[in-house]
Write a protein that binds this DNA or RNA. Structure first.
Length: 639
RNA sequence: GCCGUUGUAGCUCAGCUGGUAGAGCAACUGAUUCGUAAUCAGUAGGUCGGCGGUUCGAGUCCGCCCAACGGCACCA
């Protein structure tokens, strides 16, 4: 007798050994059909897992998040199965589940083409239709290694060899395909009903660029066709808000072959850019910062002193002048800030010294890394360096974190991932100091009731860091803000302050950026709002549209009034129908369209059409202005 | 940097197996003077990403380079 306790607390008794599938069947045929795996005493197992004694059992269906993972994992196996049938010389490696799908890496003498992908997908569908049972087998470790070696599957053999002694080696067999896997898997391939291969890419074996490159095939998988289509639709929608596409459509910026990774800002894009700077400048002044500006091009000796010449040379733009001096374009602002600090004498009374700089930095990023505004070679940081005493550090960190999150909130980013990167293997400074610095950063986050993700060993050699991560339209994460503690530069530049007892002491130096890169932040903003920026950020806030030529004069007078009041307003005096103008400026996502005809001209009014086709009716110019100004002042997202 | 894909007019794209480039939108000109998402007609516009090669002949085939796109690696 085996007593099975179900999630609702009810107990079912079975004669002898029972499987989760039998349990599901005992509950109902619908559940048995939807089942893909099960949880026995909290452990995820196959539906064929033998339950030999009393246990808590939960059936996992395709609707459960864990069930979906099983489906995706099994689909990865199906992919490998199809590839091995079509291209027996391909070697299998690994095939994990990722967000929205899976991938599988193969060693194959040539790259897979898009045509190969179609063939593979067809074969996968055929294999799924055959409803091939997926069976778990437990193997002896050495036997498994020998088995895969004999099959010419050297990568697989290597993976098994790296599994610690004593762990069970489980293989899954479906038809003539057999693969190492922890499982669990769906009971048969017929459960895999909605999948699509999406892309091929090169990927390095074990993620190391020094290793050989494998062929990675990506796919997505869902419980049913409907969910798959919904996902594909969502991808399409995300593409529409891609900032690179909107940047061109809204005439904000563009790129040129002559300057890969560097932005040509158009007037409208540049206005937004300036608004961001103005905003940040205001917030920083409020928060007790001062602002400096240091040179873009500085002598090699400075970079040798900072260590960049030795450690960052590959990423630096270097230039030589007629007099044979070697200069470098700054990749970071900190050496400039240190040089500024060192220029005068600083008292402990002056600390903390919060020194901001909107620094343009140049970094020679690898060509394959470039990505619109989100990864460029030439960008502007809202950088600042805080020089303080060790005692002040914790409080300063907390202030920075609070400021960052407050500002993100004001831009509509409520959910921000925070990463804490701690001491790497190669580092300077004692463990005691690292303890203190890491604690200061961690406390700054937890003190605000927030959580962080820990990335052990990912910190810089000179200190730990916090990173603030926002997500783009198609789910890619981008680091924006950062807060780093630096034990290196104060030393290298030998900077100091005069303490109370007249001794010279070394200040702590914090690096921080809130937007991070203005280019990147603006790119994310564009995607976040799908190009329809809130009124206060919109590069064109209103356009006056005269119905016909005889209203042009009045339209211009309205524009002048609004401009004088600080609103960026334009007129469209072209000889076009009003519907045409409305369409065009709607597509440009202008917050307010002000239609003026005989009635408005006669009464000193404007007929206001707010973004999204909302008709606010006719109102006096002053009333419209008051409305707009109120929304600008409150940084409202509504028009 | 590595793997793959792509590169034709300002934009979006067509151009079969090699025979000397085409559409829509935009622009310009003219007509229309219009009340909330595209008025009509006409005109002009391209060294087909760059360089080299094969060929009687290359947008089309081959090689190298550049850039973009999707990944990987990178992002002290």
């Amino acid at each position: 007798m085996v007593a099975v306790t179900l999630p609702d607390g009810s107990v079912k008794a079975f004669e002898g050994v029972v499987t989760p599938l039998q349990v599901a069947e005992a509950i109902g045929p619908g559940l048995a059909k939807a089942a893909v795996a099960a949880k026995v005493n909290g452990r995820l197992v196959d539906l064929t897992y033998p339950i030999t004694e009393d246990a808590n059992v939960a059936i996992v269906t395709e609707r459960d998040p864990e069930g979906l993972e099983v489906i995706r994992h099994s689909t990865a196996h199906l992919l490998a199965h199809a590839v091995k049938e079509l291209y027996p010389e391909a070697q299998v490696t690994i095939g994990p589940v990722i967000e929205n799908g899976f991938y599988y890496d193969f060693a194959f003498p040539r790259p897979f083409t898009p045509e190969d992908l179609e063939r593979i997908e067809e074969r996968m569908k055929a294999l799924a239709a055959q409803q091939i049972p997926v069976v778990r087998e437990e193997w002896d470790r050495d036997e498994a290694i020998r088995f895969f070696r004999d099959q010419g599957e050297y990568y697989k053999a290597e993976i098994i060899a790296s599994i610690p002694e004593g762990e069970t080696i489980s293989l899954y067999r479906q038809g003539n395909f057999i693969d190492l896997c922890r499982g669990p898997h769906v009971p048969d391939t017929g459960k895999l009903k909605a999948f699509k291969l999406t892309k091929v890419a090169g990927a390095y074996w074990r993620g190391d660029a020094r290793n050989e490159q494998l062929q990675r095939i990506y796919g997505t998988a869902w419980p049913d066709k409907k969910a798959l289509n919904a996902y594909l639709k969502q991808l399409e929608e995300a593409e529409k808000r891609d900032h690179r596409r909107l940047g061109v459509q809204l005439d904000l910026f563009h790129f040129e072959d002559v300057a890969p990774g560097s932005v040509f800002w158009h007037p409208k894009g540049w206005r937004i850019f300036q608004k961001l700077i103005n905003y940040m400048r205001e917030r920083q002044l409020e928060a007790g910062y001062i602002e400096i500006n240091t040179p873009d091009v500085m002598d090699r000796t400075l970079w040798e002193r900072s260590g960049h010449w030795q450690n960052y040379h590959d990423h630096m733009f270097v230039t030589q002048t007629e007099d044979e001096r070697v200069f470098a374009l700054k990749p970071m602002n900190c050496p400039g800030a240190c040089t500024w600090y060192k220029h005068g004498l600083h008292s402990y009374r002056d600390l903390p010294l919060r020194v901001a700089e909107f620094g343009k930095v140049h970094r020679y990023e690898p060509s394959g890394a470039l990505h619109g505004l989100l990864r460029v070679r030439h960008f502007t940081q809202d950088d600042a360096h805080i020089f303080c005493t060790p005692e002040q550090m914790t409080a300063e960190c907390a202030k920075v974190v609070r400021l960052i999150l407050d500002i993100y909130r004001e831009f509509g980013f409520e959910q921000v991932r925070i990463k804490l990167s701690t001491r790497p293997e190669n580092r300077i400074g004692s463990d005691a100091v690292w303890d203190q610095l890491e604690a200061a950063l961690a406390d700054a986050v937890t003190g605000l009731g927030l959580e962080y993700e820990l990335f052990p060993g990912e910190g810089a050699f000179y200190g730990p860091k916090l990173e603030f991560v926002l997500r783009d339209a198609i789910g890619r994460d981008w680091q924006c803000g950062t807060l780093q503690v630096d034990m290196n530069l104060p030393e290298r530049f030998d900077i100091e302050y005069v303490a109370e007892d007249n001794s010279r002491r070394r200040p702590v130096m914090l690096h921080r950026a809130l937007f991070g890169s203005l280019e990147r932040f603006l790119g994310i903003l564009i995607e976040h709002h799908a190009g329809a920026l809130p009124l206060w950020l919109a590069p064109v806030q209103a356009v006056v549209l005269p119905i016909s030529e005889r209203h042009a004069e009045y339209a211009v007078s309205v524009q002048k009034q609004l401009r004088a009041a600080g609103l960026w307003c334009e007129t469209d005096l072209r000889n076009e129908k009003i519907t045409y103008k409305i369409r065009e400026h709607s597509l440009q996502k202008v917050p307010y369209l002000l239609v003026v005809g005989d009635q408005e001209a006669a009464s000193g009014q404007v007929a206001v059409r707010a973004r999204g086709g909302v008709d606010l009716g006719a109102m006096p110019v002053a009333a419209f202005l008051a409305r707009a100004q109120e929304r600008i002042a409150s940084r409202s997202t509504e028009c």
